[in-house]
């Protein structure tokens, strides 16, 4: 119990340090939110100065940090200069979409990776293993955005929706039809996103399983005539689980960040476009909220991974 409290304290400290560092980093980068406005003929110098003062951008770093911190304490999560609204208002309607997309694709990616990785390792060098490898190499060489565009091309030819999370006539649909509509809209983005995270998972699953197959006790079990599914489930997978659990924990961080680019291309109403825009704009509080979210997820993921590691091998937990 006290260890959990310790981890929680560490997590809190982590987020505080992270937020401070983000402020420092943003300070180092030249310009601020209004830099780009200089070329906008509608924005006079006086107006830009007024707005800078209004949003406290002229104040020293620590004051700006404290203002942000107090805004977080009030539950607003910071204030977006671009939208002139608390960050929470912007994040709430979008976060669920991002989590839905990322969660579904994470699930899909792990299922495919486990199947292909295990099957590939079982017949290492076989046709399935080799074609998986070629696919992995291809996926790694294709930029994510291009993959998304190819996904839309597929949609064009299959009558699947080209983007968005709901159809235009969504409001008039019955409950069942709405569910189907939502699922249809998920197909392409989830597949594309799963494909982008697939290479890392497949390769690690394959390596771990191959290594486990090679372990003395598995070979002994095989020698005793245990084979097939039982061998895999009872002997190989537990032995292979280690790096996979670690990866699983890390992939948690990707729940918020993994789909940033894809969302924009797919018209998925998630956090992606918002966070990316805040990065180019230097709308710091929005970006910070995104980064803290990612870090928190990552931290939770790692916590779960450490817990799972102890669970499979109680002795490893110190």
């Amino acid at each position: 119990m006290s260890r959990l409290v310790g981890r929680l304290a560490q997590g809190a400290l982590l987020l505080v340090v992270l937020s401070m560092l983000v402020f420092v980093f943003a300070e180092l980068a030249p310009g601020d939110f209004f830099t780009g406005a200089v070329l906008d003929p509608r924005m006079s110098e006086e107006l830009i100065e007024t707005l800078r003062l209004q949003y406290g951008l002229e104040q020293p770093l620590h004051i700006r940090y404290l203002r942000w911190a107090s805004s977080v304490a009030r539950g607003e999560g910071g204030f977006s200069i671009a939208y002139r609204r608390p960050v929470v208002d912007l994040f709430l309607p979008r976060a669920a979409h991002t989590l839905m997309l990322a969660g579904a694709s994470m699930l899909l990616a792990w299922i495919i990776a486990l199947v292909l990785g295990i099957a590939g390792a079982y017949r290492a060098g076989g046709w399935l293993d080799r074609s998986t490898l070629i696919a992995v190499a291809a996926l790694l060489a294709i930029p994510e955005l291009l993959l998304a565009l190819l996904g839309i091309l597929v949609a064009v030819n299959t009558r699947l929706p080209l983007g968005g999370a709901t159809s235009l006539d969504y409001a008039s649909l019955s409950l069942g039809a709405r569910l189907i509509d939502r699922i249809e809209h998920l197909v392409i983005p989830v597949t594309v996103l799963a494909l982008t995270s697939l290479p890392v998972l497949v390769r690690h699953v394959r390596t771990s399983v191959l290594e486990a197959l090679d372990a003395p006790f598995v070979r002994a079990a095989r020698g005793h005539g245990i084979s097939g599914r039982r061998l895999m489930l009872a002997y190989v997978l537990p032995a292979a689980a280690n790096p996979l659990i670690t990866l699983f924990g890390i992939s948690f961080g990707g729940l918020l960040s993994g789909s940033l680019v894809i969302e924009g291309a797919m018209g998925w109403p998630g956090l992606g476009p918002l966070v990316l825009e805040s990065m180019t704009n230097q709308d710091l509080h929005v970006l910070l909220a995104g980064i803290l979210g990612v870090c928190a997820f990552l931290w939770v993921g790692n916590l779960i991974a450490d817990g799972l590691l102890v669970l499979i091998d109680p002795r490893s937990g110190d």
Binding site: V22, F25, L28, A29, I250, M279, I291, L292
Partner: peptide, 16 residues
Amino acid sequence: VELTISLPWLYLLIGV
């Protein structure tokens, strides 16, 4: 590790 993965290095790099 968690910091390294989450930090916006981009800003630091633009700064550098």
